[in-house]
Design a protein around this nucleic acid. Structure first.
Lengths: 195, 195
DNA sequence: TTGACAACAGAACGATCGTTCTTTATATTG
DNA sequence: CAATATAAAGAACGATCGTTCTGTTGTCAA
């Protein structure tokens, strides 16, 4: 797709999708694109598909691809002759929600309190992306339930027993008596800087 | 919708949507929900609509609402009896993309290389959310262009001149000769833990 | 024991959808 | 000026979709 018209059709489709989060029927796309022929709509969509902006489900429904949402992702080592040209940086595209959340129904967000994990780069006020499950591996950063509170710590093993290790020398290692209740595993971290 | 079954149906729909970005036909929803009746699928969707998780376009197509994507946000000090029900955890909801990105057209993502900002909790491989603009305030973490490369540093002032200060004693302060070219300001940070 | 209700199943139907094929208009090129 | 793409229009058709209406099953309280 190296075409001006198709680029225009794509932006119309993107605008509609931004409003409705849905790719409508060919009949409606006729209105959106300002044309009168369903078969031509199909031809357009097929070209957008070849250019990887949209694809189809096994059921035949049109869905947007990652590239459709297109947020450019640059490496900090990339040469940048003109600062404006970074929008043109091709390569990876990136959707934050999709990157961080694989299974929405099992994912919870938890605001981090305190600085017990500061050496792991986890600060007070950060938002932890947590996948709820009851098992974890040694070395995982887990959300455990200790004294009816969420605690974010690294899971480790000591003399055959599980322990929770903070990433801050000022905090003690937690050695739970009895069973250790794991709420979930840390799969991502989000921080917002005040502006 | 104060119903356990409906919460389960919602989760299944959310997981399907995460995969396909599309709410499929009633026939397919029968498979997804594990039921055999299209009319019952309709009844379920109608209830989810009343609970504002989904809605319909003017064309009658089902689309997700904002609440559909929202993740429950908990404070780490919150008591945890295991919030199994989605609707039970009311209060704050949270959409990551929306939180981090105010102006999509001016926002770029940049993968961080190196550990020069490690004391600020910014690690190698983290993804920086950067709002492109040419001015910044003292104390902001900025993306500057130095020697044709992106550099992430704290903006500071020394003897009336701007300098770029790393958050790692092993790295030198950058004192640009002439003008300092600022690419943008760090507004957010995203990290993904391997699984 | 019965009645009511919730939770589905199933069939029937007209509307709509995507597909394919044929035709037309406009622009480009030699 | 003819040849040829490109861009679109339009019709025809079977498949699929959502809707509605009616049936079935299980549960629980009276």
């Amino acid at each position: 797709m190296n075409n001006d018209k198709d680029t225009e059709y794509l932006s119309k489709l993107q605008d509609y999708y931004a409003d409705w989060k849905n790719i409508p029927s060919y009949a409606r796309l006729c209105e959106i694109f300002g044309i009168a022929s369903k078969s031509w709509v199909k031809a357009i969509l097929t070209r957008l598909e070849e250019a990887s902006f949209i694809e189809r489900t096994p059921d035949g429904a049109w869905i947007p691809t990652r590239q459709f949402f297109a947020r450019p992702l640059a490496e900090s080592s990339v040469q940048a002759g003109m600062p404006a040209s970074v929008t043109a940086t091709q390569g990876d595209y990136f959707v934050i929600d999709e990157m961080l959340i694989d299974t929405p129904s099992k994912t919870t967000l938890i605001t981090v309190k305190g600085d017990s994990m500061i050496d792991a780069g986890i600060h007070d006020g950060d938002v932890a992306v947590v996948e709820k499950r009851m098992t974890a591996n040694i070395g995982d950063i887990v959300v455990a339930i200790v004294d009816d509170e969420f605690t974010l710590k690294t899971l480790d093993r000591e003399n055959g027993a599980f322990i929770l290790r903070p990433a801050n020398p000022a905090y003690p290692v937690i050695r739970p008596q009895g069973t250790l209740e794991i709420f979930g595993v840390l799969t991502g971290l989000v921080r917002k800087y005040r502006r």
